[in-house]
C-alpha cells in the first residue's frame, strides 16, 4: 500500500547534502512557508546550498516585520513566534547562492543575511521577478526548456539574456530551473501525496511542487480522502509527506 508519509522531518530531508540546489515554496512571511522542513534542513549543518525562493531576505535574528499589524492590530505569526524562514539557512552560513525576488530588506542601513554574505564575498544573489521565477520553476516541472517573457527587457534583470521579438514586442528567455529538491507546505494531503492548500498559503507551493528531482511536503493534516475535483497538486509530483509542527490553519 502506497504511503508517502515519512515519520519525521529529519528523516524526510536526510539525503539532502551540501551543494544541493533546493527550491522552497511560500511567500513573504509565514503562511505557506515550509518552516518545519527548513528547520530540519538547517539542523543538518550543510554548506554551499543554492536556494530558490520568492523571499529569502529575512532570517530569524533581527527580524523586521514586513507587515502592517503589530500593537493592537490583528496579527499574523512572525519568525519571532518560532517560525523558520528560508533566510535562516543564509543566516547560518549554509548558502552559497540564492535565486530570489526579495534577497534584501532594501534598507541601506541594515543588511539581511544574504546581503551580509555578499559583503563577505561568499554568497551570490541572482535577482529575478516573481512571475519569471515562477515560470522557470513551472518549466522545470513541465519538461520545458524555458519561456520568453516581456518582463525585464532593457533592465538590469534582463542583462545577458537572449531576446526575441514576438508580434513586434521584445521578450527575453528565462530558462527552466530543475532543483535537486523541492520543499513545500500544504494544508492537507492524502497518503498518495495529493495536496490541497488554504487561501493565500497556496502561493508558490504548487509551482515549486514537482520542479525538483525529489519533492517533500509538510502538511497540517493527512486525511483519508480528498475530493479529486478540488486537488491542486497531483500526487506524482510529491515524494514524501511529513506533518508540520505548526498548526496555523487547523483551528
Amino acid at each position: 500500500m502506497i504511503n508517502k508519509v515519512v515519520e519525521s522531518a529529519a528523516e524526510a530531508v536526510a539525503d539532502i547534502g551540501s551543494g544541493a540546489m533546493i527550491a522552497f515554496g511560500g511567500f513573504v512571511g509565514v503562511p505557506g512557508v515550509p518552516s518545519t522542513l527548513i528547520k530540519a534542513i538547517a539542523e543538518r549543518g550543510l554548506s554551499d546550498l543554492t536556494i530558490i525562493a520568492c523571499e529569502s531576505g529575512r532570517g530569524r535574528a533581527g527580524a523586521q516585520s514586513y507587515g502592517a499589524g503589530g500593537g493592537n492590530q490583528p496579527y499574523i505569526p512572525e519568525p519571532e513566534d518560532g517560525v523558520y524562514p528560508v533566510g535562516y539557512l543564509a543566516e547560518l552560513g549554509q548558502v552559497r547562492k540564492a535565486i530570489t525576488t526579495f534577497s534584501s530588506l532594501n534598507n541601506p542601513n541594515f543588511d539581511g543575511p544574504l546581503e551580509a554574505g555578499v559583503r563577505r564575498g561568499d554568497v551570490e544573489i541572482e535577482l529575478i521577478g516573481q512571475g519569471s521565477l515562477c515560470e522557470r520553476l513551472r518549466c522545470g516541472r513541465a519538461g520545458l526548456g524555458g519561456v520568453y517573457t516581456p518582463v525585464g527587457v532593457g533592465t538590469k534583470i534582463g542583462e545577458g539574456k537572449d531576446v526575441r521579438y514576438f508580434d513586434g514586442v521584445p521578450h527575453l528567455l528565462e530558462t527552466a530551473l530543475r532543483p535537486d529538491f523541492a520543499i513545500i507546505s500544504a494544508y492537507q494531503a492524502d497518503r498518495f501525496g495529493n495536496l490541497i492548500y488554504r487561501h493565500g498559503a497556496r502561493t508558490t507551493n504548487p509551482v515549486v511542487a514537482g520542479s525538483g528531482k525529489v519533492t517533500i511536503v509538510e502538511v497540517e493534516e493527512v486525511v483519508d480522502y480528498l475530493d479529486p475535483q478540488h486537488i491542486v497538486t497531483p500526487s506524482p509530483y510529491v515524494d514524501r509527506i511529513v506533518l508540520s509542527d505548526r498548526r496555523l490553519m487547523v483551528r
Partner: peptide, 20 residues
Amino acid sequence: FWLPGAIAGAIGGAQDLAFC
C-alpha cells in the same frame, strides 16, 4: 527596486506589474 548603497534589490512582483 534598488536603492543606492544596498547590496541587492527587492524586485518582488513590481517588474511584472509595471511591464504588463
